[in-house]
Every structure is written in structure tokens, then in C-alpha cells.
Write a protein that binds this DNA or RNA. Structure first.
Lengths: 165, 165
DNA sequence: ATTTTTTAATTCACTAGTGAAATATGAATC
DNA sequence: GATTCATATTTCACTAGTGAATTAAAAAAT
């Protein structure tokens, strides 16, 4: 369906990089599909993607703590949104928010023991469906995919730098 | 950075499919990156992604017309949002909206000559950066990537059917 | 030592997208 | 042929995320 669409457009505008455009479109569709699958798994826990990601970042830190600014960077979220995310997670007792000693502009965010238990409980049931996503992929397939995606990521990185350096 | 995070989590929870989780995360990041790049190219034309996609679907149809319901399906948008998208495009004179003759529940959406000209003018300047995204990709790389992404899409399709059939 | 500049987080007003209900027409059933 | 059921679109109330302005503290400049 998408293939036919791109085909017809590239017949009218032949200088279009049709193959590349198709790959772009595929990546966008897959990104949406994976996001949808993820949100489906998160819904029972009343978490959305960015809250989950933020919580996982904290969980994966050796000391379980970070600052809003750092979390923004790693979760690629605006500071505005991080405030809301932190509000939501604090309300549920999964993280705490306190003032930093050294730099009083900073806020210190820390995952709570309850937050750790929550992650450890919710994660395992997600595994089977993640594995299913890559059913029929050989180890070589996965390695190839990883390599190609990282190459693409590198190119996109350059493009993003060329936007506002 | 993400690799270390997943590494630490999979040390605590060893039954996690770490490789697959990493590929998921990569796909999500790349989807966001490509979306960002696309929105950047669309901004000067005051279009967002879903408006652009809707317009392109109409452009690529042989007769240049469709209905809201059909557009929802192809653009994977809710009906609610399609109403807003159509409103925006009508306002700019890129599409028209009229009642269907056969089925008066239906609305007929059609790209205007101005809409066609608009697409033909805005598309070519986007090509260089699309090509750059795949710089360093051999033809084999692109074929492989296409194959792997389609396989992944197939698996995700199955998963989505298992959600609410 | 005071002023200026920079950095960090938050609040506010907005855009984009979703789910549930409303409206209206067509199709099916009795 | 009236009633029930299904389909198509829109409206309304909500969630998620963004940009601009605000507040406050630290760092740099004078």
C-alpha cells in the first residue's frame, strides 16, 4: 500500500530517492508500532512511555539518582515535560525529589525502594512479547540489524547537528 | 549510554532479552530522530507530520480523492484527529471537502490543483537530506535493512492482532 | 563587592492526538 | 414500513509534549 503510493509519486517526480524514502517511511511506521506495543504493556501499570523510560534510567544508575536536567538529556524530553513526569512519579511514591546540597539550583531525583520493587515486578512479564518481536531473526540477522541501525543513527546525528549547531 | 543502562539492568535481571530490548530501544530512538528531521523539513511549510502524510496519500492516489475513514486507516490516525487535519488543509486550500453522492454519511476529500502544486514544489528540496540519511549504505545494506524491517513489521503485526482481535 | 551573565527548574499558554459520546445516514430485521 | 443495528463523521473533554516567560541560585566580570 505504502509501496504503491511511493511508486506513483516517484513516477511523477523521478528524481526522488524512492528507496530511501521507503526505508524512512518503514522506520517511522515501525517506531510507531513498537511504541504502541510498549504502551500496551505499560497501560496496566498506568505508566506512559516517558514515565517508564525516566524510571528505567534511574533504576539503571548505580546510585539510583539523577537531576531533572540530566534526565531530560537521557530521555530526550524537554525540561517542562520532565517536571510533569517527576510530579507523577513522586505522587506514586516511585521516586523522591529533594534539594541538592552543593548546588541549590539543582533538584535531586532518586528512585525509592518501592520504585525498584515496582520495576522488578513489572519488567519480566514484558519479556515474552519482546522476544516474539524478533521471532525468525537469526543471530546474524540481529547483528546486521544492530549494525545498520547504528550506522543510520550516526548519519541522523550529523543531520541533527547541521540543524542548529 | 543506553547500552550501559541496559547492561546494568540485565545484570540484575538476567532473564531479560537484552539484545532484543536494545534493538527495540534503538528503533524507538531512530523513529524519533527521523520524525524530528521530517518535522524540521516541514516546519517552513507550516505542516506537521500527519498533515503532510495525509496530503501525500491524496497526492499519490490516481484520482486524488478519498474519505476521512480511508485516510484514517492509511495514515494510522484516529477519526477525531483526521477531522482536525482536514480542517487545517481545507483552510489552506490544499484540499476540498464535499458530501458524497452515493452515501450521504460519507465525506469526500480531494486534493486541489493548488495542493498538487504545493507538493511538487516542497518535495524536491527534501531529497538531499533524505539521501544523506543513508550515506555509506551500500545497495546490499539497503536491501538487507529493507528485508529485516519488513520481517520485524510482520512480527509486530501479529503482536498487534493479539492485542484486540 | 556589586553587577551581569549563565544555568536549573518551574509555570503558563499552546499544539497534537485520543477516547467517549453525539449526530446522522444507511442497511438489516421483524 | 417501522424498528433495530451498523457505519461515518464530528464535537467535547482529556493526556502528552513544546516554547516562552519566570524565579532563583551560582559563576563571571567589573
Amino acid at each position: 500500500m505504502m509501496d504503491e503510493g511511493i511508486g506513483r509519486v516517484s513516477q511523477i517526480i523521478p528524481q526522488m530517492p524512492a528507496l530511501e524514502a521507503r526505508l524512512c517511511r518503514l522506520m517511522l511506521m515501525l517506531g510507531d508500532d513498537i511504541e504502541e506495543e510498549l504502551e500496551f504493556k505499560l497501560k496496566p501499570h498506568k505508566l506512559n512511555h516517558s514515565e517508564f523510560l525516566t524510571l528505567m534510567i534511574l533504576y539503571s544508575r548505580p546510585d539510583g539518582s539523577s537531576t531533572p536536567g540530566e534526565l531530560c538529556e537521557y530521555a530526550t524530553q524537554g525540561a517542562t515535560n520532565m517536571t510533569r513526569i517527576a510530579n507523577a512519579l513522586v505522587k506514586r511514591g516511585l521516586i523522591t525529589r529533594g534539594a541538592s546540597e552543593e548546588d541549590r539550583r539543582r533538584v535531586l531525583i532518586r528512585i525509592t525502594p518501592a520504585g525498584r520493587r515496582f520495576v522488578q515486578k513489572m519488567l519480566p512479564p514484558m519479556f515474552p512479547r519482546v522476544a516474539t518481536m524478533f521471532a525468525g531473526f537469526s543471530d546474524t540477522d540481529k547483528r546486521h540489524l544492530d549494525r545498520l541501525l547504528r550506522k543510520l543513527a550516526g548519519n541522523l546525528d550529523q543531520l541533527s547537528e547541521s540543524r542548529q549547531p
